[in-house]
């Protein structure tokens, strides 16, 4: 049971990182980005293809991350060019359309064949109090926590952080102060795409090789983001890790194993009902 929970940690770390990406995009450009994991999955599949053709892991991973960033930036460009002023529902619908488009094209490009998984990633395991912890687990957890700290710090402490916050809260004002909204919006999308791809590299080896299954990893990321109420990066990390651990523990039981994918749904419903308990509908007046 505990071992299974620990095993779930590495998936949890990846969910947490993806969740941080979801929150970051929501806070910066007011989009609930359904295409996040799809863009990142492109990065992962590029890595797999390059590795299969003999490229070393390092450069292949770099190109993969760049690919994820580029795909995400393309979606961001569509957003920035035509939907900068649109409401969150319209923008998120564009995200859904982007999800479909990326899935369709990627299925064409990468196909359905099983590919060898790079072994560098599984890492060395060590024993800690009777349970085995792998290097990738530690990397995923530490990585997601560091990511949350870094993103919070950049937004709160740096000049670029203030600019991004200005852009998200008052795009018009920011533009009148001489900031280029488009360029910064697209940059945010690219950075988020890169981070999400790195998270995907961590979780990829444990996942099925189907592209559409990987693109749907955005759902546990949403669940994590909801735990953080689409605002708080640290709560998002905790949410993501919790989902991973619960799923890992469920995988132990033959009864619950088949319902692993139900875990995010339950967490989403609970988080939403709790978060919105005091709301009386849309904006004042």
């Amino acid at each position: 049971m505990i071992q299974a929970g620990i095993t779930g940690l590495s998936a949890g770390g990846a969910y947490a990182a993806l969740g941080v990406c979801v929150v970051l995009l929501y806070r910066m450009v007011a989009v609930v980005n359904f295409s996040l994991a799809a863009a990142a999955a492109d990065g992962w599949f590029v890595l797999l293809v390059l590795h299969q053709h003999g490229m070393a892991y390092g450069p292949a991973a770099l190109i993969g991350v760049a690919t994820g960033a580029a795909v995400s930036a393309i979606v961001g460009t569509i957003m920035a060019l035509w939907f900068a002023e649109a409401d969150v529902r319209t923008k998120s619908t564009i995200g859904i359309a982007a999800f479909i488009a990326i899935n369709t094209i990627s299925f064409r490009v990468f196909g359905d064949n099983a590919r060898p998984i790079p072994t560098q990633l599984t890492g060395r395991a060590f024993e800690l109090g009777g349970v085995y912890v792998t290097g990738s687990t530690v990397a995923a957890i530490v990585g997601s926590v560091v990511l949350a700290i870094a993103v919070s710090a950049v937004l709160a402490k740096t000049r670029i952080g203030s600019e991004l916050r200005a852009l998200s809260e008052r795009p018009r004002t920011a533009e009148l102060m001489g900031m280029s909204v488009r360029l910064r919006t697209i940059s945010v999308w690219a950075v988020v795409g890169a981070i999400a791809t790195i998270a995907m590299l961590a979780i990829g080896p444990q996942q099925s090789s189907s592209f559409s299954a990987m693109s749907l990893l955005v759902v546990p990321a949403f669940a994590a983001a909801l735990v953080g109420l689409f605002r708080n990066f640290y709560a998002t990390v905790i949410g993501g890790i919790a989902i991973g651990v619960i799923q890992g523990m469920a995988s132990e039981s033959s009864t619950f194993a088949q319902y692993q994918d139900v875990v995010p749904f339950v967490i989403i419903v609970v988080a939403i009902l709790w978060a919105q308990r005091g709301e009386v509908w849309d904006v004042a007046r």
Binding site: V32, S92, F222, L226, I272
Partner: peptide, 16 residues
């Protein structure tokens, strides 16, 4: 309690 976008997340999770 919620509108558009959170609901989309709920329905997607339900579909999964």
């Amino acid at each position: 309690r919620l509108r558009g976008i959170n609901l989309a997340v709920v329905t997607l999770a339900f579909a999964i």
